[in-house]
Nucleic acid binder design. Sequence first.
DNA 1: GGGTATTTTGCAACTTGTTGCATAATGAAG
DNA 2: CTTCATTATGCAACAAGTTGCAAAATACCC
Lengths: 179, 179
Amino acid sequence: MSLPHAILTALLEKPSSGLELTRRFDRSIGYFWSATHQQIYRELGKLEKAGLIRALDRDVPTRGQKKEYEVLPSGREELERWVGVREDPRDPRDPLLLRLRATGVVGVGGDMVDELRRHRALHQERLAEYREFERRDAARGNGTERDRVHRLVLQGGIDLELFWVTWLDRALADLEDTG
Amino acid sequence: MSLPHAILTALLEKPSSGLELTRRFDRSIGYFWSATHQQIYRELGKLEKAGLIRALDRDVPTRGQKKEYEVLPSGREELERWVGVREDPRDPRDPLLLRLRATGVVGVGGDMVDELRRHRALHQERLAEYREFERRDAARGNGTERDRVHRLVLQGGIDLELFWVTWLDRALADLEDTG
DNA sequence: GGGTATTTTGCAACTTGTTGCATAATGAAG
DNA sequence: CTTCATTATGCAACAAGTTGCAAAATACCC
């Protein structure tokens, strides 16, 4: 039940159409919680029907027409309720760890070492990207609570990528040693 | 498409019934990829129909009767194929990061600080649990490739929990400072 | 102004994951 | 020998996420 709330957050930050939301997801919230445009349109429909958001420019019910949404008071209340909810952390659900574990029974091919190297490179790239965001954020203001929270979340992303790079280095050193 | 392969891995390590698998998931693979018993039974059915596993003790088609499964050669081949697949890392999909971000628009209540503290405690517990596994593994053998790979995966779990504890400390320090 | 590409919204079908409940065997208690 | 908890398997309905495609508006090109 996180996607609708991610959308409410994004719409509160700035009212948008479905496609705009999709694009914004691709370069911010989506780093932590990705969503396809179909998911987003479906959720927008549900949120509108539930009276949590509404379309500006009413009377544009047709396809192909841009439709901007804004959050209604009840939507904001729902978001406030949601941030107060207690929810335990979930499993990481990362297929790479599973695949590595599977090599315990079918053997570590050179393929897996290549794959770990490839992942290392991807995480390194993502890390560089985050650091670029960080650099830009530092230049801009940092007074508001919103800025501070964004910086914390970004820091989380950075630390997470650092975890991956470090662990993958360890794993590669181990596997290349005797594998 | 990871659950069936997680099941194949577990069954190769040791043939089991559905319920045994569920229990084994709860205390090993499930830390990284959890699954309910219903998911597992459904997948076992599919895997059997696809000819990748088979039930020992044939002729026990009734409910309430224990049914043990083992992996067939084609199942092993499928698992070998899968470990060789290239698959990019996915987003972390952690609701806590989203909820924290949402506080950027609806405000950080003391509730969120409590929630971060609670998560910190949970990750700390999980970390202690992993370290206990590590201690036990170190005592046992460590020669086989399987042991080494298991140790790497466990190390990943430990490092991941360390990331959380460290990041949560940072976030708490920041929020308690001025929040 | 007719064709072609782009933007924007959306449907339908499928897979994966969750929740609640039903059913059968088994063993222990009284 | 019946009742009750436990073990074990499973169905059904739903929610969330994915994939492929369709269709309406708009803009641009010749």
